[in-house]
Simulated scan of single mutants.
Amino acid sequence: MGLEPTVPPLPRRFSKCPFAAVSDSVGDLDRAIPLYETTLAQRQQVLGHTHPSTLISRNNLASARRETEPVQHGSTATSAPEAAPQKPSTAD
């Protein structure tokens, strides 16, 4: 007979994670980020801070926030670089 350990299913409240992933995949980060935040908080509380599922949730949230960063803070990739100040010429 099997004495293999069984892993209990995650609580139903973790079901927001797939909705976050779908929202993220279609570019709806305004909806995905709060769902990722909720999922992360719940996993930290239930599973602990070092559980692999918690770490995956933390990574998903960080990735989604990173994608919004250029939009929120202005993209430096498209702006022209500022010219360095010129030293006055000493040659006459």
Rank of each mutant, 00 (worst) to 15 (best):
T50D: 15
A32V: 06
A83N: 08
A21I: 07
S15W: 00
S89F: 00
E69S: 13
E82L: 11
H51Y: 02
L47Y: 04
S57T: 09
A41V: 12
A20D: 01
N60L: 10
P88C: 05
A62G: 13
D92H: 09
S89D: 15
A84F: 08
D92S: 14
G48Y: 10
R31N: 13
V46D: 12
Y36N: 07
S23Q: 11
Q44K: 15
K87L: 14
P11I: 03
E82V: 05
D92R: 09
V22Q: 12
L35M: 14
Q44V: 15
A64D: 09
H73D: 05
P5E: 12
V26A: 01
V7S: 13
N60A: 13
P70Y: 01
S53V: 02
A83T: 12
T78Y: 04
T78F: 08
E82C: 09
A21R: 06
E67M: 02
L3W: 04
A32R: 08
R65S: 00
M1H: 14
A77Q: 12
D24Y: 12
P52F: 08
E37K: 12
E67I: 03
H73Y: 13
P34I: 07
R58E: 15
Q44H: 00
D24E: 09
T90P: 10
R12I: 10
K87G: 05
P18S: 11
R31P: 00
Q44C: 13
Y36I: 03
L55W: 02
S53C: 03
Q44E: 15
G2C: 11
N59S: 13
A32Q: 01
L47K: 09
V46T: 09
E67H: 08
D24T: 02
V7T: 14
R58W: 01
L10K: 01
P85D: 01
T78C: 06
E67R: 15
A91F: 08
K16E: 12
L35V: 06
D92T: 08
A83R: 06
A64E: 03
E37R: 13
Q44F: 06
H73V: 01
H73G: 02
T78K: 07
L61S: 09
A83Q: 10
Y36M: 11
H73M: 13
S15K: 09
L61Q: 01
L47M: 03
R31W: 01
V22T: 11
A91N: 10
V7L: 12
P52C: 09
A21H: 05
A91S: 11
A32N: 03
R31S: 15
T54E: 00
V71Q: 14
S75C: 15
S15R: 14
V22E: 14
S63D: 06
V71K: 15
G48C: 02
Q45Y: 09
R31A: 15
S63R: 08
V26G: 01
R58K: 06
E67G: 01
V71P: 02
